[in-house]
């Protein structure tokens, strides 16, 4: 009885860790540098980044589910071509749906919708995760990874848009009921047009990567420091003990 709840709890935990790992620890863009093309090309505004992310959520979750469903039917030789066909099918469907229901998004993402097919993230998850795990796990993995991808795109899009225009527009590309913009800072500082341009994509991702590196490194340093202190403490304690023992034995003999 006790054992089974513990098992359940453990299983719940794996689902959760599996879901959240894509956000920070295994973030596709900032950790694995997967799917860099869309991360650079369609993040000149928060909304296009979000739109691209949502399309990837759709494609990655569904392709992970389908791949995991048929993993036992497909012989090894034709794994890659089958996955390509499955992914390309979902991408084509997504492309048509976007064109029908969010035409401005379709126009602004342009060629990068069909290019989701060759987004390494999707192929990578299909071969390395979905082809080895259960349907539910694969679906959670796909959703989590894609949402992590989306968050990263939104972060980049947000930085670029606010630096270039001083405002964040909404309702322009996505079919939202309202349309407008947030912040509306009109500082000269927030008018660096270079950030919506091609160069801005590289610069912003580079800066964010450095920031995350710095955070990671400082955490690492802290951890090492703690460990060193702990070791020193233990050493001190051992030395103390040794000294005491020596004193005791010396006293005893004396």
């Amino acid at each position: 009885m006790v054992q089974s709840t513990a098992k359940k709890k453990k299983a719940g935990n794996t689902y959760l860790t599996n879901f959240v790992k894509g956000f920070i620890r295994e973030n596709p863009i900032f950790v694995f540098l997967l799917g860099m093309c869309p991360a650079l090309a369609v993040t000149d505004s928060l909304e296009t980044g979000l739109g691209m992310g949502l399309l990837v959520v759709f494609v990655l979750t569904l392709s992970n589910i389908v791949v995991s469903l048929i993993k036992n039917l497909i012989p090894d030789e034709i794994r890659i071509p089958s996955y390509i066909v499955i992914i390309a099918t979902f991408v084509t469907i997504v492309e048509m749906l976007t064109e029908a229901f969010a035409p401005p998004l379709y126009e602004s993402l342009g060629i990068f919708i069909p290019l989701i097919v060759v987004n390494c993230l999707i192929m990578g998850r299909a071969t390395s995760f979905a082809s080895k795990n259960t349907v539910l796990m694969s679906a959670i993995d796909g959703l989590g990874m894609a949402l992590g991808f989306t968050v990263a795109l939104m972060l980049i899009g947000f930085s670029r848009e606010i630096l270039a225009t001083g405002a964040i527009g909404y309702g322009i590309y996505l079919p939202l009921p309202v349309e407008g913009s947030l912040f509306n800072l009109s500082y000269a500082l927030f008018n660096m047009e270079v950030f919506v341009g091609p160069a801005g994509g590289f610069l912003v991702i580079g800066i964010w990567l450095a920031v995350f590196n710095a955070i990671g490194q400082s955490k690492q340093r802290k951890k090492e420091e703690d460990r060193r202190r702990w070791i020193e403490k233990k050493k001190r304690e051992a030395a103390e003990r040794k000294r005491k023992k020596a004193m005791e034995s010396a006293g005893g003999s004396a």
């Binding site: 091609p198 160069a199 580079g206 990567l209 920031v211 710095a214 490194q217």
Partner: peptide
């Protein structure tokens, strides 16, 4: 240290993109 590797390379690529602009 924080810029070593990919981050600084991306900045370099950004500067190259500026040149191509």
């Amino acid at each position: 240290k924080a810029w070593k590797g990919i981050p600084i390379s991306l900045i370099v690529a950004g500067i190259m993109a500026l040149a191509f602009l």
